[in-house]
Write a protein that binds this DNA or RNA. Structure first.
Lengths: 341, 341
DNA sequence: GTGAAAGCGCTAACAA
DNA sequence: TTGTTAGCGCTTTCAC
């Protein structure tokens, strides 16, 4: 990181060879105490620290991994990154963070970027790429894929029970007597992807309950942030849509929608109940607090790091175990409370 | 990042020397077209990419910087990191993110960590270290300090107008006719640090308006997150404190406090007005939206990166210009609206 | 316009 | 127990 002493400088001062210095630094046990002491005082005198880059070149490893997410200012990815960095630190790895903006071409470019060469492997959470781009995942470095944009790729993949969990959340609303359940954040025509899968879970629950799907209470919006949640909800209200419940396909959408509901005088949960998806920290402290799906973010972070590390250590994937699903749970709070029987 | 072709492999296939290959890669202009073509097809054939680590060793630079923050799951730091990474990318740098947890000893340890050797410089936002730890900032690599924990250190320092901006926010409340302004998030006995400085701005505004400071409406809490904002507010209410306004020393505290107010039936802004500090994305979409101080986060990120880069390029600091203040602005929203005259 | 060779700082065979 | 030496893959004088 700066002009500093080298192994040779230390060796010269201590009157030994660089090998001996190297041995001392790397904790090689069989060194005469007197020698060790001389080396250590030389190290202290020069305040020598090993050049990490040279070590990397020698060892072929950097001890760093890359995490690529759409944007850290999106709460979900901020919390995911926090968890990944935390887990990586426990594994002795540091994390370089890239932001793709969720843009397909930037994601593809990122996969081939020479900048990745700075790290040993990649944890990648795409948002713009789709099934057609699966070939781009055939890269020459260890890669762990997160999310639901691409399936059956040639890489380890950690994903959520999107369909099951959203079905369960919808069933919960139906069990509370709700029949007109609006959706905020759907993506037109999407089959895979978080939006498509969660919408499928929603529809499966409706079907099972014999409730007709009504496209008039489904709001479509691309980027999942608060502003779009609020805008979509205002649009639904302006269109005169009638509903007694809302599912935001993520928490920020739900929070934005809740805000729009309340600014037009609707009461949550008395008039409309609202559920989200992600269990952000914020979901506990919104007003009202948000009923939501906890998608197992910490589990995902931990599994991503340990899986990547296994590949870094050369373990090849068990072909049957490439895909791993995070455990989920419905967190029932005030915005869609459990009715007392 | 993986076993891959080297310059020598390419040179052999192309029938040239490695120097020529290197020239082609680095865009050296004077190469015979035929030669260039042979080299390029050899590169393509082997799908060769340069080994970044070797380049780093040679050049003494990595093209990466470290950003150390308390925790990315704290919205402020998530948004700050997003801005820093964005600016760094524009400057051709990648960013390694470390989380210190805001813990003093981990912060100090981080400054000396050999892991930093992987990058060229550090942007450091401490939370636990204080003025007494200033000596730890005398490091051998380029360092840019963010925040208000340490002043007059030997390094570039980017900070906020904490006192002025909070005074202005408080004056705004006073101008709206508020006299009993509670504070959430104060730190007992703190002089420097965000909490101490912001509280000082608050007191200056009170003094100027001839309003007595009342410790009974100041809630002390260490970690600035939603839960503590809510807890502090509940405590104030339980203690029977009387107030007509609340200043949260950051947005998450203010949002938590607002939540606690509303769950006990208080209306914001009719009964109590609330202002925060940070202008998180969320502040625009809370219910009601939050009046807050925009501390110039993007400016901070941009200035941090450009300042660090200047040091990386060997420019020494102008001693008088080590300290830079971000421009701030009060964002007036629904939680503490501007009264119409 | 292209090649040969030194060396960035370190690790790890292999010797002594 | 310690020293010598050969690279890791690249950039960069300095020749030709």
């Amino acid at each position: 990181m700066a002009v500093s002493a080298t192994l040779h400088d230390v060796a010269r001062i201590a009157g030994v060879s660089i090998k001996t210095v190297s041995n001392v630094i790397n904790g090689y046990p069989h060194i005469r105490p007197a020698t060790r002491e001389r080396v250590e005082s030389a190290i202290a005198e020069l305040s020598y620290t090993p050049n990490q880059t040279a070590r990397n070149l020698r060892s072929g490893r950097t001890g760093a991994i890359t995490l690529a997410v759409p944007d850290l200012s999106l709460s979900y990815f901020g919390e995911l990154a926090a968890a990944v960095i935390h887990e990586a630190e426990r594994a002795g790895l540091v994390v370089l963070v890239e932001q793709t903006g969720g843009d397909r071409s930037r994601e593809i470019e990122m996969l081939r970027s020479p900048r990745l060469k700075l790290t040993d492997g990649l944890i990648f959470s795409p948002l713009g790429m789709g099934q057609d781009d699966v070939d781009n995942l055939s890269v020459s470095y260890p890669l762990v894929l997160l999310g639901e944009r691409i399936f059956d790729g040639p890489v380890d993949h950690i994903t959520m029970h999107n369909v099951d969990s959203t079905r369960e959340a919808t069933e919960f609303l139906i069990a509370q007597g709700r029949r007109r359940i609006a959706v905020v954040g759907a993506h037109k025509g999407e089959i895979v992807g978080s939006a498509g899968l969660r919408l499928r879970g929603y529809r499966e629950a409706l079907d099972a309950a014999g409730i007709a799907f009504d496209d008039d209470i489904v709001a479509y919006t691309t980027l999942w942030h608060r502003a779009n949640g609020a805008r979509s909800m205002r649009q639904l209200l302006a269109d005169g849509a009638k509903f007694d419940a809302v599912i935001g396909l993520n928490d920020t959408l739900a929070l934005g929608a809740m805000r729009a509901l309340q600014e037009t005088g609707r009461h949550v949960p008395d008039d409309v109940v609202v559920v989200g998806y992600d269990d952000l920290d914020e979901a506990q402290y919104s007003i009202p607090s948000l009923t939501t799906v906890d998608p197992g973010r910490d589990w995902i972070a931990r599994t991503a790091v340990t899986t990547l590390q296994r590949r870094l250590n050369g373990e090849s994937a068990d072909p049957g175990a490439l895909r791993q699903f995070a455990p989920y749970a419905l967190r029932i709070r005030e915005s869609a409370p459990q009715k007392n029987a």
